[in-house]
Design a binder for these strands. Structure first.
Lengths: 228, 228
DNA sequence: CCAAGAACTTGCACAGAGTGTAAAAATGCA
DNA sequence: TGCATTTTTACACTCTGTGCAAGTTCTTGG
């Protein structure tokens, strides 16, 4: 790693940030994450050490810890990427749209092969491992916190002030729980199948989950459309 | 610890299980948990080791690990106790009652001083610490899984077969999220205040959260009763 | 272009977590 | 009481996570 990248004639410098330093850091970070995932694939959870990851990423053990606080954290960057994506979609929605509708739209955006693939793989590999599952939980929780922030801003922008903390937190938590439930069901039924058919099923599950939430889980009228 | 308990004339042996061995184990487990909590109080999160806990509980370091897999796990037994309690309440509800109503009833049962006190203390002490928060999350997740089981059994008993996995998981996850949201708001507003007034507020928050869930988070009609 | 300084990497050392193993102590049972 | 079973304990060992100081690489201003 970082043995003087071959100084490509850097013709354009897109406005501000991507300095050499930042590019290197991003690359290293990615290399670590990739190496960790590769080892997870080849050796299985719990059967490799930080030293192994460092070696595979061609950095020192110490540098690994400059980037991630643990093996799990390195792997969880996949999940974080996935959820950050969801959050970004959510923030793009118009501020006057109902939260649930925004959530539905944001989640449906995720059901595309490129986005879901890494998540699906990590999910299946992590299944058996308690440690990994804990960091997955943490990632979802982190996302919940960010949704709360996003929704808070949105409310502040539209309705002046005085919003109900309970409403905010309960809603954000439920949205995430339902999103997670949909993915759990999908994983359970389809494993790592990323075919168009399977992905459309995922989309439908996400929509249905938001529908359940929006209708207060009325036990009658067993929700919407084409459950095979 | 375990230096031959003073052989109290064990007049009654309640039916089956509580043998001397099991009693000792339960006592040791409790002693460890207590010692850990005590250290958390006196030194703050992250400022004591497993060895410290073991010493305080008068056992060896190795024995600690026979009971708990980490410091956090020892502390999380508080939360597990709290949530197991909730689950037990849930299971006591009649099988034909709507799930949300059962959840509401079960959660309200928890808003009593003896039950909430340890949870509230742990919550405030754990606030700052990432490690502790992770095991808290894990505890809530574990509870979600058990609620799913409980609800599954209930459905199986009443409605024959064929129930919707998505419905089950989304509902259970949302119920837990809302319960957690209510507790979060309560903690944020009342800290460790266990007065009757504060507890009645907690009850109301729990009821309101279930109400929100049952009404599909309709943004209009800002829910029910006496907010502060 | 280059020197000074900022940012990053690395090796080293060290405290602590977790686990296998085998011997010792406690407990259960006949 | 004596033997079988379970639990505790000491010990050794690997791995994690972090502080520190010396070495590298990048940035920036002259």
């Amino acid at each position: 790693m970082s043995t003087t990248p071959p100084a490509i004639a850097d013709s354009k410098q897109p406005a501000t940030s991507p300095s050499r330093r930042e590019l290197n850091k991003a690359a290293t970070r990615q290399a670590i994450s990739d190496a960790a995932l590769q080892l997870l694939r080849s050796k299985g959870p719990g059967n490799f050490t930080v030293e192994d990851i460092a070696e595979a990423a061609a950095i020192s053990r110490r540098t690994f810890f400059n980037y991630f606080s643990s093996t799990e954290a390195a792997l969880a960057s996949v999940t974080h990427g996935f959820l950050d994506n969801a959050l970004a979609q959510f923030r793009l929605r118009p501020a006057d749209e109902p939260i649930l509708e925004s959530a539905r739209a944001a989640l449906v955006q995720l059901a595309d092969p490129m986005t879901v693939a890494p998540m699906a793989e990590l999910y299946s590999l992590a299944q058996s491992n308690p440690q990994l599952n804990r960091s997955e939980l943490e990632a979802w929780d982190h996302c919940t916190a960010q949704i709360i922030e996003a929704a808070r801003e949105r409310f502040a922008r539209t309705s002046g002030g005085e919003l109900d903390e309970l409403y905010l937190r309960a809603l954000a938590g439920s949205v995430i729980s339902c999103g997670k439930a949909a993915m759990d069901v999908w994983f359970a039924q389809h494993g790592a199948d990323l075919s168009a058919k399977s992905l459309s099923k995922l989309r439908q599950l996400l929509i249905d989950a938001m529908g359940l939430l929006g209708s207060g889980f009325t036990p009658t009228a067993n929700l919407s459309t084409d459950r095979h």
